[in-house]
Design a protein around this nucleic acid. Structure first.
Lengths: 148, 148
DNA sequence: GGAGTTAGTCCGAAAAATCGACTGACTGGC
DNA sequence: GCCAGTCAGTCGATTTTTCGGACTAACTCC
């Protein structure tokens, strides 16, 4: 068969983006990291259409990134909190924030500054868990993949 | 004026996603990190429509993430390489890959294994540049923002 | 009872993505 | 020179998403 349709690469980046790659999804997750849990507040902070945000939150809950929790009984109201899988997206959010701070700066310095428990301003750095060195793309010596 | 339209939060995450948040953009960047520089090869590895990939590469070049470089003269052929700004997206790509490995695993282990210069398998970890501790969301003690 | 809050849904219009076919510049084989 | 093949797209019609605004529903507060 000469007509073997070439399947795309099997890749964890792609599988992650299937879940969080839709428009507004990562901004909704950002909001929850910042402590915003309610629909209406997310809406104004993000600037997405209500419609789209409602759909996005639904799929994020379906995919197990967010969880709905009832915080009010009589007007039945839910809030959104991060699941364990959702919390594991923190490095992605911080990575995006750092890139924006560096390469799309705004007047008056970074629009958002986080403080780490150690007392300093948070400056995230990606290190190798084994040697502790900061990771740079050119230090990757080998890529092992089913199909490269 | 009571009709102050509530502007969305000024945030570096949002500004980054304006550049790399469109569908297929981050997968194209992934390919370039893996050493794939040519249109046709990206196309099969990513699985995007030709049309869309062509448009995406165009916007990534416009935004200064990728650069076109002519690698052939007589059939005039260009290849795509990462700019300095593009290389700074490595932490984001690795973050997405790590999340997928952890939360959307495939049979037979991670589909792609990278080796670090230190000799071990690459396991990226986000550390505080000041104290060296691994960053966790609950260790953020304060968020300073123009509008929280 | 009336205004306000919260979390949506519904609709039509606009924008983006998708699929398949087509173009054009070239190479390499015979 | 001719044919097949490669590479990097473009074009057009269709489908899917997104957008913006209006509307609903349940409830609270005054």
């Amino acid at each position: 068969m000469a007509t073997a349709k070439p399947a795309p690469r099997t890749c964890s980046v792609a599988r992650t983006l299937e879940v969080v790659g839709e428009k507004w999804a990562l901004l909704a997750i950002r909001e929850v990291f910042l402590g915003v849990r309610r629909f209406e507040e997310m809406l104004t902070n993000i600037g997405a259409p209500r419609d789209t945000l409602a759909a996005r939150l639904r799929t994020l809950v379906e995919h197990g990134i967010l969880e709905r929790r009832q915080y009010s009984d009589h007007p039945p109201r839910d809030e959104y909190v991060l699941s364990a899988a959702g919390r594991d997206l923190y490095p992605v959010i911080l990575g995006l924030m750092q890139w924006g701070d560096r390469h799309r700066p705004v007047d008056g310095g970074p629009p958002m500054v986080l403080d780490h428990a150690c007392g300093h301003r948070l400056e995230p750095r990606l290190d190798c868990a084994h040697c502790g060195e900061q990771i740079q793309a050119r230090q990757i010596t080998r890529v092992t993949s089913a199909r490269l």
